[in-house]
Design a binder for these strands. Structure first.
Lengths: 207, 207
DNA sequence: GGGTGTGAAGCCGTTCACAGCA
DNA sequence: TGCTGTGAACGGCTTCACACCC
């Protein structure tokens, strides 16, 4: 059974908070405490846990480690997720470093760019390849997801190569929305939109 | 009247597509064409325009420039939005450059960090100040929004300074969720969560 | 016919209210 | 009493269906 999007997002967040708790020596946590860490309600937390079929046998709250592992068993794929990043500008470099500095199941293992000054070099810890080799390299390295962090005006040209290479998931940080056929998962997250949204609701809040 | 969140996001996206159209010499656009650019339905577009009270008098589609201006009149604040960024690591630099390279109403006009090697220097085009001066500088520069791009473990310490400085909007790229009292708008956008979400739905799609 | 504007219906996610259990 | 698990109600967003207009 597939979980709702929002629940998946929150589970990812819970897991990280739970890891913090475990590091801090906390062994059990109540739903309202976990909720408080995320600015949501306790019911919401319990509903999410209900959806993944988790329940606690004790009344001392949820066992932090057990719950974290349970969430991992839901979220993580048994096969490792190999990720490539397209566009090694500032944003691409930042995302790559940010990611690979963490201890995650997900790893960015290759970068692609069109700039000859970048191709062939190791940038932010990963080898940067020419975009012309994209399809071949995806096959060789068994890459199944890509992060797109190119300039807006070239993002559209990536759609076909990504489809042809057999990529299954795309995380797009470009302000150009990318559309793929059914079967390819896309998340478009444009920083400009996020900030414009905050600005709008700030304005409305002051009315 | 305040618009739904989703509508605000889409309006921001429509506006950028419309600017592209205008640049490309397109003067009119049908709802289904605009929808196609964003991978959504024409009804959705028309519903959004209905919510902001926009309607076209002609049947040649919407006038691109008129619609773009109308959206701007809804989204943009009459007073300029002055933004600060906290945390001038790779992500902070990338976001700052990304932003200020664009021709937006929103500008990042100051940066803050605790690293003495960064304080006093101009980074990514903006002056980097010591975090200790945050509250004072916010007042001096009339800053009303902040972007947070610090490491996860220090993000929590920013909540009080941000409240005390009178900040009204926060865009948080940290993986630590930030909670503020009513009246302060927050958007938490964690890159790790985004990618884990894509990975989850890729996994589910293959079942 | 092809496109727009919109009430009504449907769907999805959140919250309420409460039963059950230590 | 205090917390968990959950059916049922609620609310917000999307889609349907259709009237209207060139």
């Amino acid at each position: 059974m597939t979980l709702p999007e929002k629940t998946v997002e929150r589970l990812s967040e819970y897991r990280r908070s739970l890891a913090d708790c475990a590091d801090g020596g906390i062994t059990h946590i109540f739903s309202h405490v976990l909720a408080g860490l995320h600015g949501i309600t306790a019911v919401q937390v319990r509903r999410d846990l209900m959806l993944i079929g988790f329940s606690s046998d004790t009344k001392k709250g949820y066992d932090v480690r057990v719950l974290a592992d349970f969430i991992s068993s839901i979220l993580d794929s048994p096969v490792p997720a190999n990720i490539a990043i397209i566009g090694m500008g500032h944003l691409g470099r930042a995302i790559t470093k940010y990611f690979n500095s963490k201890d995650l199941k997900l790893k960015i293992i290759a970068a692609f760019d069109v700039d000859p000054a970048k191709v062939g070099r190791e940038i932010a810890g990963v080898e940067c390849h020419d975009m012309g080799c994209f399809e071949r390299m995806v096959g060789e390295l068994d890459i199944n997801m890509v992060v797109v962090s190119t300039p807006r005006d070239v993002a559209g040209e990536l759609v076909l190569p990504i489809i042809n290479a057999g990529i299954k998931g795309v995380l797009n940080f470009t302000s150009r929305p990318l559309n793929f056929p059914r079967g390819i998962v896309v998340e478009n997250h444009d920083i400009t939109t996020m900030l414009e949204k905050v600005a709008y609701f700030v304005k409305e809040g002051e009315e």
